[in-house]
């Protein structure tokens, strides 16, 4: 299968959908040059730096029959548009009794590894997950990103595509032809039997590396990539934990009221899954500080494969006595 970078897969998804549907247009402060060349400056608009207004303009155009894509670029810049995201986009369909559909795609890069310090290395997706009315995803591979973007562009609701800063230049297989990945369907990136690691974005790759390392010690790790944050694939997460009896959640965001907390709750509040748990749930997250600049500091704050390995070993403590029983 051919390989593309994560960033290329994103551009390809947008271009393919724009060729198929004239109602789609793209707004960003600095859109991809290839998109501007192909579609011209009316369908790919280089905008003023006014994310608040543009986030709302996208809603209004969507309610008037278009299918806008608003690229915030870094998630940092979405914060100046919070009124439009929280009070308008998330609520407009429901609050007006479902009168109109609002097909908007918002794109935002998240995560660290870029040495850009506190404002530009954030993983605030749980803030958005907390809102009712938005859908959102955070893929870990170019193939998943392309397939999810295509679904999101065709969805009749506001959807946020969170895209990993660390993965932009990472290559991976991308199927030929037209394919789409449904929202709300997790992907088991590696099957295993001793421990489930639920991870998103870059940490899927770190979890896979950790699993490879742990396999040398005879520890079998299953890596579950939810891909979509809302709606979250509860069934896939619970099924995996019911099989392994142990859960580690790896997330580049901090733990407090985060994605990892949601996954822990999904597992522990389900009686059938809770009954199979052999160890407390372990979260491997960023430390609770703004992200610092110096590489030494940044690397200390973010979780990585080493911390995932430590987390897996922690939930496996007592496994021998398990087997003795």
């Amino acid at each position: 299968m051919r390989e593309l970078t994560y960033a290329q897969a994103g551009v390809e998804a947008v271009a393919e959908e724009m060729r198929n549907d004239q109602r789609i247009f793209y707004m960003s402060t600095d859109p991809a040059v290839s998109l501007m060349k192909e579609f011209g400056n009316k369908r790919v608009r280089a905008t003023p730096i006014a994310e608040g207004a543009l986030t709302g303009i996208a809603i209004g155009a969507a309610g008037s029959g278009y299918r806008p894509i608003m690229d915030w670029r870094q998630v940092t810049f979405s914060f100046v548009a919070m009124d439009q995201i929280v009070n308008q986009a998330a609520k407009i369909h429901y609050m007006f009794g479902g009168q109109r559909t609002f097909p908007v795609l918002y794109r935002a890069n998240v995560g660290g590894g870029t040495r850009l310090a506190a404002q530009h290395c954030q993983c605030p997706y749980s803030m958005f997950m907390n809102l009712s009315g938005l859908k959102m995803f955070l893929p870990s591979t170019p193939g998943d990103l392309k397939g999810l973007l295509k679904t999101a562009i065709r969805d009749n609701n506001p959807v946020i595509s969170f895209e990993s800063n660390r993965l932009l230049t990472t290559k991976g297989p991308v199927p030929d032809g037209d394919y789409a990945i449904p929202l709300g369907v997790a992907d088991i990136k590696r099957t295993g039997s001793d421990v489930t690691v639920v991870a998103v974005a870059w940490l899927v790759h770190e979890a896979l590396a950790a699993a490879e390392e742990l396999a040398k010690d005879g520890i079998s790790v299953e890596v579950v990539d939810p891909r979509t944050l809302v709606p979250l694939d509860h069934a896939a997460i619970r099924a995996s934990v019911q099989k392994t009896g142990r859960l580690v959640v790896a997330d580049e965001a901090g733990p407090t009221a985060g994605f990892s907390a949601e996954v822990a709750a999904v597992v522990t509040e389900d009686p059938a899954t809770f009954a199979r748990l052999k160890a407390p749930v372990k979260r491997v997250c960023a430390l609770n500080v703004p992200i610092p600049y110096s590489p030494v500091l940044e690397d200390h704050v973010f979780p990585d494969r080493k911390r995932i390995i430590a987390g897996v070993r922690e939930v496996l403590q007592g496994r021998l006595s398990d087997k003795a029983v």
Partner: peptide
Amino acid sequence: SIVTGAGLA
């Protein structure tokens, strides 16, 4: 901004 989007449309 929402109605400005309607104006763009």
